[in-house]
């Protein structure tokens, strides 16, 4: 097992991928290189250490590497593909996690900087009336990590035939009676639609809801995979197999095609589907690493997690709610609106 570093040809420091210039940059001497120019410097004397004291189960999920820069122990789990040495802080890429079947087909490099992610968190607090007042001051930014998250990109052809029953209602009245005329219809729609590169989170560590709410990624900026992009970031390999990922994407495809078909039914007062027949066939499957900033803040001994699309900057998260503010707003609005309404009622 070997760990990978990109050495600066000028000074020997460890090169990092720079999201702004989209090039490899040396943090020590500021030299810049294209991702294709740099060559991997693999230390020949890399060894995989196994800890004796750990239980069998713990060992199964944990792999220990030697740092090529300082020789310190880097502990990763079975999915770690890029991380940092806890002793010297140098980036460490584990190429074995990204070769053969595990080699990603494509990667979208980071576009958004760490500072932008930090600012986005601050602006995420804005306009949130129910956020506890002390949260802004008291919460500490625990960590901010750029992670290349493994995704399955799934191509899917969907075919559907759906039957609906629909009605139209006309009402009128004469001097003595009210009339309601209901026309009944039977509708049939058959057709298909193709989906391309639906992303499905392939990492068990990442929350699917977070990963889906920072979609979409712009695949036009995707490039062929090169380990150089991982330098300076964390990366995981997939640990959700493509079959499980397809189940999730198929559900989304089903909902989509049903709503697309429903939108072709117009001009009726009511419409409900009677029978739905769906046939999905999967096309190409791609394995991709997509850039995500993960931010953790601590408030009242609780960790709050936020995620940001490392390409588009789309930000998502979950903030705590102040119960006090909730009730103040509720009663304020209730009494205020009620008083205005009563005043108007009395005046009328």
């Amino acid at each position: 097992m070997s760990v990978l570093e990109y050495k600066c040809p000028a000074c020997g420091g460890t090169l990092l991928f720079d999201s702004e210039s989209q090039r490899m940059k040396c943090p020590y001497c500021d030299s810049e290189f294209d991702t294709k120019e740099v060559s991997e410097s693999e230390s020949p004397d890399i060894f995989k250490l196994e800890s004796k004291e750990l239980s069998q189960e713990e060992k199964a999920g944990m792999i220990v590497y030697g740092c090529p820069s300082c020789g310190g122990e880097i502990v990763g789990d079975s999915a770690t593909a890029a991380t940092f040495c806890p002793f010297c802080g140098n980036t460490a890429i584990i190429p074995q996690q990204l070769t053969g079947m595990l080699r990603p087909d494509l990667i979208i490099p980071f576009k958004v900087t760490r500072e932008a992610a930090r600012d986005a968190l601050k602006s995420f607090y804005k306009g949130k009336a129910l956020l506890p007042s002390v949260f802004r001051q008291q919460n500490r930014l625990e960590s901010i990590k750029g992670i290349y998250v493994p995704f399955w990109l799934i191509d899917c052809e969907a075919h559907a035939s759906i039957q609906y029953k629909a009605t139209n209602v006309q009402v009128w009245s004469d001097a003595y009676y009210n009339y309601a005329k209901t026309d009944y219809y039977r509708l049939y729609r058959e057709g298909g639609v193709n989906f391309e590169r639906i992303p499905a989170d392939a990492s068990t560590k990442m929350d699917d809801a977070y990963m889906e709410s920072i979609e979409p990624f712009d695949y036009k900026a995707a490039v062929n995979f090169n380990t150089a992009y991982l330098s300076g970031f964390f990366a995981d390999k997939y640990d959700v197999d493509s079959g499980a990922a397809k189940q999730r994407s198929d559900q989304r495809v089903r909902n989509s095609i049903i709503s697309l078909f429903r939108s072709t039914v117009t001009g009726y007062a009511t419409c409900e589907s009677v029978s739905v027949n769906l046939r999905l066939s999967h096309g190409k499957l791609r394995y991709a690493l997509l850039p995500v900033w993960m931010l953790n803040t601590q408030y009242n001994d609780k960790i709050y997690t936020f995620a940001m699309n490392g390409q588009t900057g789309k930000f998502t998260g979950a903030l705590p709610m102040s119960r006090g503010k909730f009730f103040i707003w509720f009663f304020g609005l209730f009494v205020g609106l009620g008083a205005i309404g009563t005043l108007i009622a009395v005046m009328l």
Binding site: L130, Y185, E190, G191, N194, F195, S213, R252, S256
Partner: peptide, 29 residues
């Protein structure tokens, strides 16, 4: 508004443009 992390229920963003087609379309009274 405090929680924006929600799963997506649709895949409409990934439908290939112009690939949606109907082969049969019947409205019967």
């Amino acid at each position: 508004q405090l929680k924006t992390a929600r799963p997506q229920s649709m895949a409409n963003d990934y439908a290939v443009r112009g690939s949606f087609h109907l082969t049969h379309r019947r409205d019967m009274f």
